[in-house]
Design a protein around this nucleic acid. Structure first.
Length: 945
RNA sequence: GCUCGGGUGGUGGAAUGGUAUACACAGGAGACUUAAAAUCUCCCGCCGUAAGGCUUGCGGGUUCGAGUCCCGCCCCGAGCACCA
């Protein structure tokens, strides 16, 4: 009888032993292939960990242990992202020093991580608040400054009135501060900005080289927001001023009916003298400024704007004079801050034009291709002009449907326009011929023309018909008798609007009918040009370039991504290493003087003046200008929390180097990160910034590779049992210390990996954790069953398990790896096992349950650690089956199964399955039409009556 | 609105176009026990006494065969969004 599984004693024992022996230390420059496995380092908060936090750390621990056993030199470090607002706010609230507080929190985090059994190489620990570390954060800033990538700006930025600091675009969520949910204001102030937009294109292009989740790549694509279009100059009539617009639809230039400037556009001031209603314009601009971003972009908000009276823009395509507006639906900080408005083909311009009664001119026609008689390749295109009529009843809200039995169409009425005929006349003529009705109360164009394309078989040509769509309301029910031919061709009846929508069978006719009821719509899609001078008939895609060239426009690429607002008016961050000198201006701190230490202050509270608390410390602020030796003042803004986290992973490679940021040879060996694990919420923040930093470091020769993280896995949240997020506020937090005390670290680890797919969020279950615990106890008790001669039939499942567990760990499918181990255990319990067989189970389980397996490993007479032992090798010859189970289907339904020897021929199988009584029952009296045999799997007998 | 990802038992979930519901939890029955816990054995998608039928959000399609592929819709989650 063996001892009971005592997780408490055993976990403590091995954690101490591992620490003493340093088994997890990574050695640079070893001859072995490397794996760099990384967690997103935590911000050590005062609240400690809940069970959700370690999920990702357990995963990298499992992965790194497996990789070490598979013969890799593994780097698996951990550190602390300790600067930032939460620590500072907490320090203010608790009236403590953030430095001391950080030390205390780090110690607590480290203890908790160790109690989970994580295999970190603590000799490489980094901390962003350590001057020896932030020296290099400042150094990178200096290098960016040198290259013009860090610059001062006075543009209005996002200001959080609660946190009392400026914020980057990335720090907002729906126009609110991501930290405290306060709506941000626009505040003009001096700030430091990083030119991240210079890297937009490379960051977008290189996404293709990364093995990252699609969702993260998509988020980054959306965030960078590339769009390709044209810049086109409109001359302001009677002046030398130009309005340069950016558009992705230069093909619609002939349809431009007005121009819109952003309210803050500088041209408004330049044209002041010519604008007749300037005071009104000023009023509108003031109102706009007062609106927050949220108000301005609120869903469904009516478009507002005001015309600049007395000035006109000239459309370079046709020299038409167009009115100019300012409107806040045009943004000052995107494109050129000015647009050409094409209401027929842009939804926003359409609503604005409708509201202000501006003209709408269609220049692109949708093309509808007939599905029954599509145009034939090689046949000649002939152009025709036609009308399509929507006819309304003289009293009721009913419409005339045209049923053609010959073609089986249920549609509107159509006809051709004869030479020199007015389309409206043609419409009336066709109506009288086809319906017999005579008198008209109202007739108007439905404001969207389109093109129909089909093949006319009797002529052998393809027809391209430009259709004008026309609405007619009858005056009365007077009819004239139609010809027999017309009567046969057009069966007519009155339907309600709803019935029409259900009945009309041609998509183009349905489209016309709907358009009339919407009172027009913007056509944003593809089509062919008309009303566009010599460009008529071109596809709009072809027309884009040609019209841009025609008006000497420039083909350009724009990004949604904004430059990174990099200064914070707060205490707890890296000081920006800049000195302001009255004589020399902005002067960088010499490299030799780094780090610029963060001084101790009496009060950390933000000043709210746009200056950080550092500004109050005269002895720190006042310094000497390194250039002229005169009076200098230090920059008092600090860096955002993201600064340190944008490059920390490089420092783990060479954490103690005082000469350079990282030794380039060591960097070459360890980089890039092979596996990076963390939350999806970092998609458009940390993961964008770090890629930008890395590319910069590559450009200045500090690192060897273009991208920092080759593979990324997202960790799904662990929710509380009530389905909500775990939070003090809800009182639903589960503390890992309690779980470890009751079930042990190995059970916690196994359970968190078994809960479900790794990247998916799941609710914690107090009930389910018992499963993994029972499993470990059964593994523990299995040692009693070891005999000298193990069961040979076990070899097959053993090797299948080796293969499956290896693959599943590689793909982060830990839940199925564990279920495979459970299946193996179920099988092993049924038979006698050898020591070697038991050891395979232990080795495969070791990454998940490091303590238990280490103990058992040494109990069954091994002396070295299981965690430096070799991973079991999969032997394909061991999994060749001697027999196969064949399922028998009749018409796709499983009716029986039979076991055959592996050498049974196909013909033997086919014969045998049909001879079975269980199958005859289903095939009797029927003809076997077909027999499908899937080797090693099934037979499907297809029968008919 | 655009772009992704997803929808399978009571629950968490599994499934290269080839026996849907593996593995686990919960539940039920039994064994051991004075008893309970722990452990072990068996049952466990739905309808049906059974034979059998039905079942992967809904509706179509391709196929000998569809959770898986294609088309249309509904719902949930994520990112972007007055971005011209």
């Amino acid at each position: 009888m063996v001892e009971k599984y005592d997780h408490k004693a055993l976990e403590k024992k091995w954690q101490d032993a591992w620490e003493a022996s340093g088994v997890y230390r990574a050695e640079s420059g070893a001859s072995k292939p490397k794996k760099y496995i990384l967690d997103m380092f935590p911000y050590p908060s005062g609240e400690g960990l809940h069970v959700g936090h370690p999920k990702g750390y357990i995963a990298t621990d499992v992965y790194s242990r497996a990789k070490r056993m598979q013969g890799f030199n593994v780097l698996h470090p951990m550190g602390w992202d300790a600067f930032g607002l939460p620590a500072e706010n907490y320090a203010i609230k608790m009236k403590t020093n953030p430095v001391e507080m950080t030390e205390k929190n780090v110690a607590r985090y480290k203890k908790q991580l160790s109690s989970i059994g994580c295999d970190y190489d603590w000799t490489r620990e980094v901390n962003t608040t350590d001057p020896a570390f932030y020296k290099w954060t400042q150094w990178i800033f200096l290098k960016m400054f040198e290259r013009g990538l860090a610059y001062e700006s006075y543009e209005p930025i996002n200001w959080c009135p609660t946190c009392q600091t400026g914020l980057a675009n990335e720090d907002l969520e729906d126009g609110k501060c991501e930290r405290c949910d306060t709506p941000v204001e626009k505040k003009p102030m001096r700030q430091w900005v990083l030119r991240i937009t210079d890297y937009a294109n490379r960051m977008l292009a290189d996404l293709n080289t990364l093995d990252w989740p699609t969702s993260i790549k998509e988020s980054q694509k959306n965030w960078i927001g590339r769009s390709v279009g044209a810049e086109i100059d409109f001359i302001v009539d009677g002046s030398d001023k130009l309005i340069t617009v950016f558009t992705t639809r230069p093909d619609t230039l002939f349809g431009a009916t007005y121009c819109v400037l952003a309210p803050e556009h500088k041209l408004v001031d330049e044209l002041k003298g010519s604008i007749l209603n300037f005071s009104e314009v000023e009023k509108y601009r003031t109102e706009t400024k007062a609106r927050t971003e949220i108000e301005r972009t609120a869903e469904g908000r009516e478009k507002t704007g005001i015309r600049l009276e007395g000035v006109f823009a000239v459309n370079p395509a046709n020299n038409e004079k167009l009115p100019i507006f300012i409107a806040d639906y045009v943004l000052g900080n995107y494109g050129t801050g000015a647009v050409m408005a094409v209401p027929a083909h842009d939804e926003r311009d359409f609503y604005f034009a409708k509201k202000l009664g501006l003209s709408i001119k269609q220049v692109v026609a949708s093309v509808f291709v007939d599905s029954v008689n599509p145009p034939k390749d090689g046949a000649e295109d002939t152009i025709r002009y036609g009308v399509i009529l929507m006819i309304k009843h003289w009293e009721e809200d009913k419409y005339l449907i045209n049923y053609s039995p010959k073609f089986n169409w249920k549609c509107l009425f159509t006809g051709g326009i004869e030479e020199n005929e007015d389309p409206l006349e043609a419409a009336v003529r066709e109506m009288r011929e086809e319906t017999g009705y005579q008198n008209i109360k109202e007739i108007h164009y439905i404001p969207l023309e389109h093109v129909d394309k089909f093949h006319a078989p009797h002529k052998g040509v393809n027809r391209v018909v430009y259709q004008k769509n026309i609405f007619i309301q009858l005056a009365d029910g007077e009819t004239k008798e139609r010809s027999k031919e017309e009567k046969d061709l057009h069966h007519i009846s009155w339907l309600t609007k709803e019935e029409m929508l259900k009945t009309i069978s041609l998509p183009n006719h349905l489209y016309i009918f709907e358009t009339e009821f919407l009172q027009g719509r913007a056509l944003a899609g593809e089509g062919v040009l008309f009303n566009s001078g010599s460009f008529d008939g071109l596809s709009n895609e072809d027309a884009k370039r040609r019209i841009t060239d025609f008006v000497q426009g420039r083909w350009v690429t724009k990004y949604r991504l904004k430059d990174w607002v990099f200064s914070r008016q707060r205490y707890w961050g890296e000081p920006i290493p800049i000195i302001h000198c009255e004589k020399c201006g902005v002067v960088p701190v010499p490299e030799a003087d780094l780090p610029v230490m963060l001084p101790h202050v009496e009060s950390y509270a933000p000043t709210g003046t746009g200056e950080s608390p550092l500004a109050d410390i005269a002895e720190w602020v006042n310094t000497v200008c390194p250039q002229c030796g005169g009076v200098g003042k230090r920059e008092t803004n600090t860096m955002p929390q993201w600064a340190g986290s944008s490059w920390y992973y490089v420092r783990y490679i060479d954490p103690k180097n005082n000469e350079v940021l990282v030794d380039k040879e060591k960097e070459k060996y360890w980089s890039p990160v092979d596996m990076y694990v963390g939350g999806a919420e970092h998609a458009t923040r940390h993961l964008i910034y770090a890629r930008f930093y890395h590319k910069f470091l590559h450009d200045i020769g500090v690192v060897n590779y273009e991208e920092p993280f080759m593979r990324l896995q997202n960790v799904g949240l662990i929710m509380a049992e009530d389905g909500r997020k775990m939070s003090k506020r809800w009182g639903n937090v589960v503390n890992p210390d309690d779980v470890i005390a009751e079930y042990g670290a190995d059970t916690l680890r196994l359970y968190e990996m078994f809960m479900g797919p790794f990247s998916q969020s799941v609710a914690w279950s107090t009930e389910s954790i018992i499963g993994p615990r029972r499993f470990l106890e059964r593994v523990w008790r299995l040692q009693e069953k070891i005999v000298t001669e193990g069961n040979q039939s076990l070899e097959m499942i053993l090797h299948k398990t080796i293969q499956k567990v290896s693959e599943d760990i590689e793909s982060f499918s830990f839940n199925t790896a564990i279920s495979t181990l459970m299946i193996l255990l179920n099988e092993m319990e049924k038979v006698s096992i050898s020591r070697k067989q038991y050891e395979v189970l232990l080795l495969l389980l070791a990454p998940f349950a490091p303590h238990l397996t280490e103990e058992l490993w040494q109990l069954v007479a091994n002396t070295s650690s299981i965690h430096v032992s070799s991973w079991p090798v999969f032997d394909a010859t061991k999994v060749i089956a001697t027999e196969m189970t064949i399922a028998i289907q009749v018409n796709g339904k499983v009716r029986d199964e039979v076991v055959f020897g592996k050498d049974t021929t196909d013909d033997e199988i086919k014969e045998a399955v049909q001879a079975r009584e269980t199958i005859k029952k289903w095939t009797e009296g029927k003809t076997v039409k077909k027999l499908i045999l899937v080797p090693g799997r099934l037979v499907n007998i297809v029968v008919t009556d």
